[in-house]
Each structure stands twice: as C-alpha cells, then as structure tokens.
Amino acid sequence: GSLMYASIFGNVSAIIQRLYSGTARYHTQMLRVREFIRFHQIPNPLRQRLEEYFQHAWSYTNGIDMNAVLKGFPECLQADICLHLNRSLLQHCKPFRGATKGCLRALAMKFKTTHAPPGDTLVHAGDLLTALYFISRGSIEILRGDVVVAILGKNDIFGEPLNLYARPGKSNGDVRALTYCDLHKIHRDDLLEVLDMYPEFSDHFWSSLEITFNLRDTNMIPGSPGSTELEGGFSRQRKRKLSFRRRTDKDTEQPGEVSALGPGRAGAGPSSRGRPGGPWGESPSSGPSSPESSEDEGPGRSSSPLRLVPFSSPRPPGEPPGGEPLMEDCEKSSDTCNPLSGAFSGVSNIFSFWGDSRGRQYQELPRCPAPTPSLLNIPLSSPGRRPRGDVESRLDALQRQLNRLETRLSADMATVLQLLQRQMTLVPPAYSAVTTPGPGPTSTSPLLPVSPLPTLTLDSLSQVSQFMACEELPPGAPELPQEGPTRRLSLPGQLGALTSQPLHRHGSDPGS
C-alpha cells in the first residue's frame, strides 16, 4: 500500500510541476520586462504597450523563439521550412505564380514574418522605404497627419515599386495596425538579389506586381527641396563636378596662354591676372594647382613670374625650331616645348642647366612650328573623362623618358669634360720664339709635331656638333674642335714665318 501511495504521489506532483513550468517561465520573463521598464524609466503609455505586446506574443508563440529554433537546422532544411511557412503567400499572390521551385525557395529564405499588435506603428512618415510588405492577416491604416487616407487588409501590398527607383524613397505617411496583424516583408536588397539570379522571372514579377498603396513621397523628385535634403551631399558634389568641367572646357578654348597655377587659371584673360583667384576666387580649394602655386600668395601677385606667355621676339635665322618633346602628345598638341628640351639645344645650356634650372624654367623657349593648343594648358582630366590607368601609364612613360634624357646628358657632359682635359694635357705650358741651342744640326726643328685630335665617332658628340652648327654659343662658352686643319689655341699665330727665318745662335768662333 505504501508503494502504491508513493507512486501516485510522485506522478501527481510531476504533472503539477509540468503544468506550472510554463507559468514560471512566463513570470520570469515578465519580471525581466518590468525590470527593464523600471531601469530605463519608460513612461506609462509606452510601458503599457510593452506589457501588452509581451503578453500577446507569449500567448501567440508560447514563449518560443522561432528564429532561434529555425537557425538550429541546416540551410537546406531551413529553405523547406521557410517554404512551408510562406506557402499561403507564395501560392495566392499573383506576382509569385509561375516561378520555379528554386526561385520560390530563394524568396522564402528572404521573407521575414512580423507580428504587430493593435496601435503599433510599422512605418513612420519620413522613414526610408527599405522593404516591401505583404499583409497575411489583420488590417492596417495609413495616416497623413491625423487623416486616415487608406485601410488595407489581407493580401494587400504596400511599399514602393523598387524597379522604378535606384534609391529608396521616404514614406509619405504613417502605417498603423488596427488589429493583430501578420506581415511578410522582404528587404529591398534581398528581393533585387533574387531577381538578379532569376532574370526570366524578374520581368514577370515586375509586370504582375500591383502595389495597393504606394508609400513613396511624390514630392521626392529631382530638383525638389525634399530631394535635395535626401541627396544633399551627392547633389552638391555633382554640381561641383559639372562646374569644374564647364570651366576646364572654357580653358581649352584659349591656347595662347600657358599658366603654371593649374587648370583653373589657364583660361583667365590678361585683365584677371591681378585678381586673387581668377574664376576660382569664390572657392580657392575647388581646383588643383601645381607646386608653384604656393608662391602666388606673396605680395606682387600681378607681377609674379609664374604666369607664362609666349615671347614675341624673333628667332635667329640659324636657330632650330626646338628640341624633341618629352611626351608623344607634344608633337601634336603643344605650341611651347618643355623646359628640359631647351637644355639640349647647345653645349652652353648643358654647362648651365643644373646651376640655374629654376631660373631657366621661365626663360624664352623655342617654339614648335605648329600653332596647336598648349601642352601645359590642357586641363586636368576628371576620373569620369580619362581612366586612372591611362594617366598612370603616361606618367610612367614620361618618367622613363626623363631617365633616358638624364643618362644621355650625363654621358655627353662626361665626354666633353674628358676631351677638354685631354686638350689641356697635350698642350705645353708655354712657348717662346727663341729656342735653346741643340747639340747638333738636327735641332733646327722649332717644335715637335703635334698629332691632331682623333675624329669623334660617338653619337652623342655628333649631336653636340649638330647643335653647335645651329645654335649661337654665348661669349663665355668653350669652343669644341671642328672639322678641318686643327691648330692649338695656345700656339702663336705666325708659326709659318718662324720656319722661314734663320735661327740666331749665340757662340764663340775658336779662330777669332
């Protein structure tokens, strides 16, 4: 009898404990919600809404976190579960008819179910419309201010047509639940991603989709105040780019002037030289400038040598048109050559190039014969006009050509200096018209024969001689050997007369 009593008592207590286990969990969670309300000092109306929603959600799901349970299964099984949970929507909604099984599984994985109690606001006026909503159960109302403009029910759709707008718009009203509602919502990016994977279904979906109420604000059109608020930074940046392009296009129409201050000032006329910023005076940081632009901040801005204009002085008759350009485009679109090309026009420029290279940067340069637009006047290309890779490749080509020119210049200078040193070592320090008596009659020769300089066969020296023939050397430049009979510069000019005159010897006659 005691054994029977113990078994009955144990079973009854276990049954009672299981009955009250759900209630215990409910009270535990309710205590957490109330502690949250007390800690954050939530006001009474919002506090009442929180408690009511918790009670309804507990009775609806029995305190089970559906998302946590669903995430515990593998992905393939999750797709089947989501397809079952959203079967009513996918079967009865017209846009989803005719979709393949794979497309429906992908869509079912992207849908999220939302449960809303009465009085809950789903979308506020001015919120971004980031999702498309399908009503599965219940009814909602749409308000503009305090005026109800629409009441939607089961199988209705609200949001915005995503295929017509590249960016999400703003809501033009509040969406509030009238009863307990079940909503299926899919985010904008998720829907577009699935439709991109199934393009054959995309056309059918957009053609058959009928949005019951379009929440997009109709005033959000390009150029409206609301649109400016939504895309303020983007609009200002776009206007700045367009104004920069218009100014650079105007600059290219004036090829007669070359400016070292950047493309923003290349198009300024002579009357605007004294102004601080020219056409860019209202925004000094709008356009890029070269490193020399920092010198323009000092006094005497109108007389600054940074602004270059072609000189009108005539060229000498024998002067060549100019050196070879550094870039391939210089032959086609440049009416002034790079300062480095002028360094190779003569030997005198070679000796004085490194010492006063900055001073020569603004000297007169030889002109190319074609009066085409200036290379320095070409505006900086924006990322939309020329690819970045093209600019980098041009810079690399320019750097390689500069290296080759520097190597060639160093070799030419070394060769010229070597020839000058050899000339100085071969010439005796001094010569006299009267020579010392020699031991015999073989001493009648006034000077030792001097062998002429070897013929220069280097390509670089031939180019130097060509430049010497075309360029007029300055007075202080050293002379180079030329073709024809060679003669030492330090010898007297009348050596031929010395050989014809008898030598005057000093000596005593033994017979006297």
Score class of each variant (00 low, 15 high):
Leu128Thr: 15
Leu129Lys: 01
Thr130Arg: 06
Ala131Met: 12
Ala131Arg: 06
Leu132Asp: 01
Leu132Gly: 02
Tyr133Met: 04
Tyr133Leu: 03
Phe134Asn: 01
Phe134Tyr: 07
Ile135Ser: 01
Ile135His: 01
Arg137Trp: 03
Gly138Asp: 01
Ile140Thr: 01
Ile140Leu: 10
Ile142His: 01
Leu143Gln: 04
Arg144Ile: 03
Gly145Cys: 04
Asp146Ala: 04
Asp146His: 07
Val148Ala: 08
Val149Cys: 06
Val149Lys: 03
Gly153Cys: 09
Gly153Ala: 08
Lys154Phe: 03
Lys154Glu: 06
Ile157Tyr: 04
Phe158His: 01
Glu160Ile: 01
Pro161Ser: 05
Asn163Trp: 07
Leu164Met: 10
Leu164Arg: 14
Tyr165Lys: 13
Tyr165Asp: 11
Ala166Ile: 06
Arg167Ile: 11
Arg167Leu: 11
Pro168Tyr: 03
Pro168Cys: 10
Gly169Asn: 03
Gly169Gln: 03
Lys170Thr: 10
Lys170Arg: 11
Ser171Lys: 01
Asp174Gln: 15
Asp174Tyr: 07
Asp174Asn: 07
Asp174Ile: 06
Asp174Gly: 03
Asp174Phe: 04
Arg176Phe: 02
Ala177Ile: 03
Thr179Trp: 01
Thr179Ile: 02
Tyr180Ala: 09
Tyr180His: 15
Asp182Asn: 04
Leu183Pro: 02
His184Leu: 07
His184Met: 05
Lys185Gly: 07
Asp189Val: 08
Glu193Gly: 11
Glu193Phe: 10
Glu193His: 12
Leu195Asn: 01
Leu195Asp: 01
Leu195Lys: 02
Asp196Cys: 12
Asp196Tyr: 08
Met197Leu: 07
Pro199Arg: 05
Glu200Pro: 03
Phe201Gly: 03
Ser202Ala: 12
Ser202Leu: 04
Asp203Gly: 09
Leu209Ala: 07
Leu209Trp: 04
Glu210Phe: 06
Phe213Met: 12
Phe213Val: 07
Asn214Val: 03
Leu215Ser: 01
Leu215Met: 04
Leu215Cys: 01
Arg216Glu: 02
Asn219Leu: 08
Met220Ile: 06
Met220Lys: 09
Ile221Gln: 09
Pro222Ala: 11
Gly223Lys: 09
Gly223Gln: 09
Ser224Phe: 10
Ser224Leu: 12
Ser224Tyr: 06
Ser224Val: 11
Pro225Tyr: 08
Pro225Glu: 11
Gly226Gln: 11
Gly226Pro: 09
Ser227Trp: 07
Ser227Glu: 12
Thr228Leu: 08
Glu229Gln: 12
Glu229Val: 08
Leu230Trp: 10
Leu230Met: 07
Leu230Val: 11
Gly232Ile: 08
Phe234His: 13
Phe234Trp: 10
Ser235Ala: 10
Lys239Gln: 10
Arg240Thr: 11
Leu242Met: 08
Arg245Ile: 13
Arg245Asp: 15
Arg246Cys: 11
Arg247Gly: 10
Arg247Pro: 08
Thr248Tyr: 10
Thr248Glu: 10
Lys250Pro: 12
Thr252Cys: 15
Thr252Lys: 11
Glu253Lys: 07
Pro255Arg: 12
Ser259Leu: 10
Ala260Phe: 10
Leu261Pro: 12
Gly264His: 11
Arg265Tyr: 11
Arg265Asp: 14
Ala266Phe: 09
Ala266Cys: 12
Ala266Met: 12
Gly267His: 10
Ala268Gly: 09
Gly269Met: 11
Pro270Asp: 15
Pro270Ser: 14
Arg273Ser: 07
Arg273Lys: 08
Pro279Arg: 15
Pro279Ser: 09
Gly281Lys: 04
Gly281Asp: 11
Ser283Leu: 05
Ser283His: 15
Ser283Glu: 12
Pro284Ser: 08
Ser285Gln: 13
Ser286Thr: 04
Pro288Asn: 15
Pro288Met: 05
Pro288Ile: 01
Glu295His: 13
Glu297Thr: 05
Glu297Ala: 12
Glu297Leu: 06
Gly298Thr: 14
Pro299Thr: 12
Arg301Ser: 10
Arg301Ala: 12
Ser303Gly: 13
Ser304Glu: 06
Pro305Phe: 06
Pro305Met: 06
Arg307His: 13
Arg307Leu: 07
Leu308Tyr: 10
Leu308Trp: 13
Leu308Met: 15
Leu308Pro: 10
Ser313Thr: 07
Pro314Arg: 06
Arg315Lys: 13
Pro316His: 09
Pro316Lys: 11
Pro321Asp: 04
Pro321Met: 15
Gly322Lys: 11
Gly323Cys: 12
Gly323Glu: 13
Gly323Phe: 14
Gly323Lys: 09
Glu324Leu: 13
Pro325Gly: 05
Pro325Leu: 12
Asp329Tyr: 08
Glu331Lys: 12
Lys332Thr: 07
Ser333Ile: 13
Ser333Asn: 15
Ser334Met: 12
Asp335Leu: 06
Asp335Phe: 07
Asp335Ser: 11
Cys337Asp: 10
Pro339Gly: 07
Pro339Asp: 11
Ser345Lys: 09
Ser345Pro: 07
Gly346Cys: 03
Gly346Asn: 07
Gly346Pro: 04
Val347Ser: 06
Ser348Ala: 10
Ser348Tyr: 05
Ser348Trp: 04
Asn349Ala: 08
Asn349Glu: 10
Ser352Lys: 15
Ser352His: 09
Phe353Asp: 13
Phe353Tyr: 07
Ser357Thr: 11
Arg358Tyr: 04
Arg360Asp: 07
Gln361Trp: 03
Gln361Arg: 09
Tyr362Thr: 09
Gln363Tyr: 07
Glu364Pro: 09
Glu364His: 04
Arg367Gly: 09
Arg367Ser: 10
Cys368Leu: 08
Pro369Tyr: 06
Pro369Lys: 09
Ala370Tyr: 11
Thr372Phe: 06
Pro373Trp: 05
Ser374Glu: 06
Leu376Tyr: 13
Leu376Gln: 05
Leu376Trp: 11
Ile378Tyr: 03
Pro379Met: 06
Pro379Ala: 10
Ser381His: 11
Ser381Gly: 10
Ser382Lys: 05
Pro383Arg: 10
Arg385Lys: 11
Arg386Gln: 13
Pro387His: 15
Arg388Pro: 05
Val391Ser: 03
Glu392Cys: 15
Glu392Phe: 01
Glu392Ala: 06
Ser393Trp: 15
Arg394Gly: 09
Arg394Gln: 11
Leu398Asn: 01
Leu398Asp: 01
Gln399Met: 04
Arg400Ile: 15
Gln401Asp: 05
Leu402Gln: 04
Leu405Phe: 05
Glu406Arg: 04
Glu406Ser: 04
Ala411Glu: 15
Asp412Ser: 05
Asp412Val: 01
Met413Cys: 04
Met413Thr: 13
Ala414Gly: 06
Ala414Pro: 12
Thr415Asn: 13
Thr415Gly: 07
Val416Gly: 01
Leu417Trp: 01
Leu419Ile: 10
Leu419Phe: 06
Leu419Arg: 07
Leu420Val: 07
Gln421Val: 06
Gln421Arg: 08
Arg422Cys: 04
Val427Cys: 06
Pro428Ile: 06
Pro428Met: 06
Ala430Tyr: 12
Thr435His: 12
Thr435Arg: 10
Thr436Ser: 10
Pro437Ala: 10
Pro439Thr: 09
Pro439Ala: 13
Pro439Val: 10
Gly440Arg: 10
Gly440His: 15
Gly440Lys: 06
Gly440Thr: 06
Pro441Ile: 05
Ser443Asn: 13
Thr444Met: 14
Pro446Gly: 10
Pro449His: 13
Val450Leu: 09
Val450Ala: 06
Pro452Phe: 11
Leu453Ala: 12
Pro454Ser: 09
Leu456Ile: 10
Thr457Leu: 08
Thr457Phe: 11
Leu458Trp: 13
Leu458Arg: 06
Leu458Cys: 06
Leu458Ala: 11
Asp459Thr: 12
Leu461Ile: 07
Ser462Ile: 12
Ser462Lys: 14
Val464Gln: 12
Ser465Glu: 12
Ser465Gln: 11
Phe467Met: 07
Phe467His: 14
Phe467Arg: 08
Met468Glu: 12
Met468Lys: 06
Cys470Lys: 08
Cys470Thr: 09
Pro474Gln: 13
Pro474Asp: 06
Pro474Tyr: 14
Pro474Asn: 09
Pro474Ser: 12
Gly476Gln: 13
Pro478Thr: 04
Pro478Met: 11
Leu491Asp: 14
Pro492Met: 14
Pro492Asp: 11
Gly493Leu: 12
Gly493Glu: 13
Gly493Lys: 10
Leu495Val: 09
Gly496Glu: 09
Gly496Trp: 04
Gly496Thr: 11
Leu498Glu: 10
Leu498Gln: 05
Leu498Asn: 15
Leu498Gly: 13
Ser500Lys: 08
Gln501Cys: 09
Pro502Asp: 08
Pro502Ser: 11
Pro502His: 08
Pro502Gln: 12
His506Gly: 13
His506Gln: 07
Ser508Ala: 08
Pro510Val: 09
Gly511Arg: 14
Gly511Val: 15
Gly511Asn: 08
